[in-house]
Design a protein around this nucleic acid. Structure first.
Lengths: 127, 127
DNA sequence: TTTACCATTTACGTTAACGTTAAGTTCAAC
DNA sequence: GTTGAACTTAACGTTAACGTAAATGGTAAA
């Protein structure tokens, strides 16, 4: 009924249970517990884990990821709170945009480099 | 005359000299030495450091970066060698492309999330 | 030639992000 | 009710990527 155990989540995301417990340890997740103390995960935590792993893949460390996860987890009620959240979120989006641009530059440079090799290969094959 | 000391490079790239020595230690750089054993860096190493820091910024570890740096450093002479280098390089470009795509997806999701907050803010301000 | 700075190697220290082991608890099935 | 898999916490271990300290050497200015 929409509750997952820690090993189910671990299998889903192909990580160890230790990893998930560690994420709770550092405040990235706060799963509820059942009567006997076992963690109960829901779709909320699944979504958060998605964000975490995507962030990790792109060089953000857990502290940075934590900020982003918490940003989208808390329900900012009140105008001032909302405004600050939006501003912070737009900053984060800017960071991501910058990373994308620089990755594209990196890609371009790699393509230029390969072009040289391509030309050399053509030279060799024309003989 | 186009030779830089280790501390000049460190200042240029805003890292410690230890970092640069470490990169040599793990095989990312192979600077020449002068008579008294001091490292002599040239534009070649400057270019390699550029690649290294950009790679780091986007979540590649030093091992992966090493592959890429060595790929573009060695002069693949001979048709077979050239072909393999080109193929490997295209794989790496593919990886970068994938990262770009997923970063863009990440950005989209963040923008959607923020849109919700924006709407809530508008609701509050219409009253 | 002594001061001072830059270089060198060696080697131990540090932090993030887990891995691993141990010792105990709970649940599901038989 | 006993067995076995899955859960719990606690705590020590591991690796990458450096930081830092110590001991030493070259060189240029005072």
């Amino acid at each position: 009924m929409s509750h997952y155990s820690i090993s189910e989540l671990a299998a889903q995301f192909n990580v160890s249970t230790r990893t998930i417990r560690y994420y709770e340890e550092v405040g990235l997740l706060q799963p509820k517990r059942n009567k006997s103390g076992h963690r109960q995960f829901t779709k909320k935590e699944m979504t958060q884990l998605q964000l975490i792993f995507r962030g990790k893949k792109y060089g953000f460390n857990l502290e940075e990821i934590k900020e982003m996860v918490l940003l989208f987890e808390e329900d900012p009620t009140g105008k001032e709170q909302l405004k600050r959240t939006i501003e912070y979120g737009e900053d984060k989006i800017h960071e991501v945009s910058k990373r994308i641009q620089e990755l594209e530059q990196m890609k371009n440079e790699m393509e230029q480099f390969l072009q040289v090799f391509h030309d050399e290969l053509n030279q060799l094959e024309e003989e």
